[in-house]
Amino acid sequence: MKLSVRDLAVTRGGLAILEGVSFDLAPGEALVLRGPNGIGKTTLLRSVAGLQPPETGSVTGAEDQIAYAAHSDGLKAMLSVTENLRFWASVFGLSEIDAALVAFDLTSLRNRMAGTLSAGQKRRLGLARLVVTGRPIWVLDEPTVSLDVASVALFAEAVRGHLKSGGSALMATHIDLGLTEARVLDLTPFRAKPRTRQMDEAFL
C-alpha cells in the first residue's frame, strides 16, 4: 500500500515548523529525510506515524501499516531480550522472533536482561522490534544512533531485505547507510514562514 503525504504542515510546541511537505512512498522504496537539527524531522515522522495530528494536509495509507521507532527503544530493563521481542510480536499479533534475532546478531544475547545490554546492543534490539511487528512501512527516527560500523551494515542489510519483500522505509538520518536505492528529501525548503500563533491551541 502506498503511503502518500500531501501538503503537510506540522507544529512543535504550538509553533509551525514545516509546511507544504508532500511525498509518496511506494512499496519497495526508501526515503531518507535530511535537514538541520530542529527543522522538524521527528515531528514530521510522529505525524506520519499518527502520534500527532498534522496542522493541515493529509497522510493516507498509513492506517495500521506503520512500525515506528523513535529515539527511545521501548525496552524493559527487567525483561530478557527474547521476552522483550516476544511481547512486541504478540502485541502485533505475531509470534515469530528468530528471524529478527538473527538479522540483528542478537542470538548470543537472547537470554540477557535488556537492562544489562550496552547502548548499541539496546539499539539493535529496538530495531529488531521492527522486524517482529510485520508492518510494511518502517518509520525510523535516527535509527543508527549509538551503532558501530558493523551494526550499521547489519541495519542497512535488514532495511534492504525489508524493501525486497515489498516493504518501505521512511527515515531521518544524518549518516550514509550505503542504501543507494534510497531517495533523499531535504526538508530545508519546507521550513514554515513565521506567522502569528492561533489562540485556541493553548486550550487543546
Partner: peptide, 16 residues
C-alpha cells in the same frame, strides 16, 4: 515508566 522508555509511543502505534 512506559512513557519514559518510549513504550507508550510504540503502544500507541500498535494495533491495540
Amino acid at each position: 515508566l512506559d512513557w519514559e522508555d518510549g513504550s507508550l509511543d510504540l503502544l500507541a502505534t500498535a494495533p491495540l
